[in-house]
């Protein structure tokens, strides 16, 4: 494992911890898209089915179990425990607009036409766009809490660092997966606008607010 991937994984871990911290400290899921969290939950469930078929390393297993359980816990917190604070009126992105194209694309463009491989491919495509309901919600309300901004920054950085990791693996390990790389680039590009706002506003100590 190279440094890009390790730091990328740690950013992913930090993002999830930040998200749980925001919920726990504010006792509220205001400003969070339950739909994005459902999609991320689905991403982890469909990708980590190999937990039961393929052992890689203790690190790999522990991280997968943590990502799976924390994403399911987040969905649970949004829709049950802190439901009263969930801003469903602003979380109006239609999930089927992402789920159906990703499913169709996974069936057509994959490495092998087998259930496990199609589900893995689906999870890669879905992860690339799963943040859209959250970004859509922020564009509707025009603002995001600072801790939510930190969460999004860590989450966006993770896939950006994975791109560096894939370059490294291409040059030093002769390893390349076009599906993951193209989807990963799409995923990172979706955060660019947010990265700009994060650097110009949140890092200057201001709240993330969109121009009216």
């Amino acid at each position: 494992m190279n440094a890009f991937r390790l730091v990328g994984d740690l950013c992913h871990l930090a993002a999830i911890v930040l998200l749980l911290l925001k919920i726990w400290k504010s006792r509220s899921v205001a400003g969070l898209s339950g739909k994005s969290q459902i999609l991320f939950g689905l991403v982890f469930v469909t990708r980590y089915l190999d937990l039961v078929t393929n052992f890689v390393s203790p690190y790999n297993t522990i991280m997968k179990v943590f990502f799976l359980s924390s994403s399911i816990a987040t969905v649970y917190l949004i829709y049950t425990k802190f439901k009263a604070t969930y801003d469903g009126n602003h979380d109006t992105f239609r999930m089927e607009f992402l789920l159906i194209p990703c499913a169709l694309l996974a069936i057509v463009v994959n490495h092998e036409f087998s259930p496990m491989e199609i589900l893995w491919t689906f999870s890669i495509y879905l992860e690339a766009v799963a943040i859209l309901p959250q970004l859509f919600m922020i564009s509707k309300t025009g603002e995001a809490e600072t801790i939510t901004s930190h969460y999004l920054f860590a989450l966006g950085s993770y896939r950006g660092l994975y791109i560096m990791n894939w370059l490294y693996r291409y040059y030093y390990e002769n390893n390349f997966d076009v599906i993951a790389v193209v989807a990963g680039i799409v995923q990172t590009v979706l955060y660019c606008d947010f990265f700009y706002l994060y650097i110009t506003k949140v890092l200057q100590g201001k709240k993330l607010q969109l121009p009216a």
């Binding site: 991937r5 994984d9 992913h12 190999d50 078929t53 393929n54 890689v56 390393s57 790999n60 991280m63 997968k64 990502f67 490495h111 092998e112 087998s114 496990m116 491989e117 893995w120 491919t121 994975y162 894939w166 693996r169 390893n175 390349f176 997966d177 599906i179 993951a180």
Partner: peptide, 10 residues
């Protein structure tokens, strides 16, 4: 596992 070459990644 299937044929994707990043099977060891998260």
């Amino acid at each position: 596992r299937g044929k994707n070459s990043y099977h060891d990644e998260l």
